[in-house]
């Protein structure tokens, strides 16, 4: 709690700098407009203008908040101009992909822990794949699946599943291996079978690792979905809002989509953090 004041100070400082930067970056346009109209602006008029332009280089925070409010609360969620609509498209693809990616990742991790040949053969590739900008294949997946008639949610979900898959594999393998030899020996003296050892010892022991990698995975999933929305011709979703915004120079629209994505990401990570805290508390681990 004692860090609330420093954080608030920091956020306030960012907002102040932002307003200042908005003046600096938008002033040129405001002066040009005034010169064209044959008038000169006083300082206060100039500042007021830089904070309320239609297509500013850098929109002021209140403009973004107003746009967010206008496109969420003031519009029907089914409207094509509503951010709730686009956010939902992105969120549903992210969640579908995240669930499948995580499930597959956990299964592969269980396989790796139990099979030495899989461990030696697959694990180096799983680790190496984390150093590769996987996202580069996103446009290809979208277009190829489109060409064989699969459109909509599924291609984006595949990308987001792919991105959340590897962090979960790597984290889960570490987690499933985290019980020490003493505990594994104890289970052996109990004559526990492999599934029993997995279910009663390895899996509970892996939960802290699982949650840590879920947080990384869900953020990666969201990025994957957003990038996956770029090459489809920009129809629906937060990524599409950003792309159309950049085509038409609608900076406020880009920023509001960016903020919506940020809020979504923060919400998803926050929910996982909450589940983590509740689970670990019930397990008595905290």
């Amino acid at each position: 709690m004692r860090s609330v004041i420093p954080i608030l100070t920091m956020v306030a400082a960012i907002v102040v700098i932002w307003y200042g930067a908005a003046i600096g970056m938008n002033a040129q346009w405001a002066r040009d407009q005034a010169a064209r109209a044959g008038t000169t602006l006083s300082t206060s008029e100039l500042i007021a203008d830089t904070w309320s332009q239609e297509r500013p280089k850098l929109p002021a925070p209140h403009q973004i908040v107003a746009e967010l409010w206008k496109t969420t609360a003031m519009m029907k969620p089914t409207s094509k101009r509503s951010l709730v609509f686009h956010g939902w498209i992105t969120l549903s693809a992210t969640m579908l992909g995240f669930v499948f990616g995580t499930g597959a990742g956990i299964l592969l991790a269980i396989g790796i822990v139990h099979s030495r040949s899989m461990d030696m053969g697959v694990m180096p590739w799983a680790i190496a794949s984390q150093t590769i900008p996987i996202i580069a294949i996103a446009p290809m997946i979208i277009v190829v699946l489109n060409s064989i008639g699969i459109t909509g949610l599924v291609p984006k979900a595949i990308i987001s599943a792919y991105l959340s898959f590897f962090p979960v594999v790597v984290g889960m393998v570490k987690g499933l291996r985290s019980p020490d030899a003493m505990q594994l020996d104890l289970l052996r003296t109990y004559n526990a079978s492999k599934p029993q050892a997995l279910w009663k010892l390895r899996f509970p022991a892996s939960l802290p690792y699982l949650f840590a990698s879920l947080k990384v995975g869900v953020a990666a999933s969201l990025v994957g979905t957003i990038v996956g929305e770029l090459p489809t011709g920009a129809i629906r979703g937060l990524g599409a809002r950003m792309l159309t915004g950049s085509y038409y120079g609608q900076t406020i629209q880009i920023w509001s989509a960016l903020f919506a994505a940020a809020i979504l990401a923060a919400g998803l990570v926050g929910i996982i953090g909450l589940v983590q805290r509740l689970t670990l508390r019930r397990m008595g681990a905290v």
Partner: peptide, 19 residues
Amino acid sequence: LQRGLLPVGNFVAALPIVG
């Protein structure tokens, strides 16, 4: 500064900055 900047930094690090 640390107490203010670290949580903000951690928060921003999880956001889709690529946007």
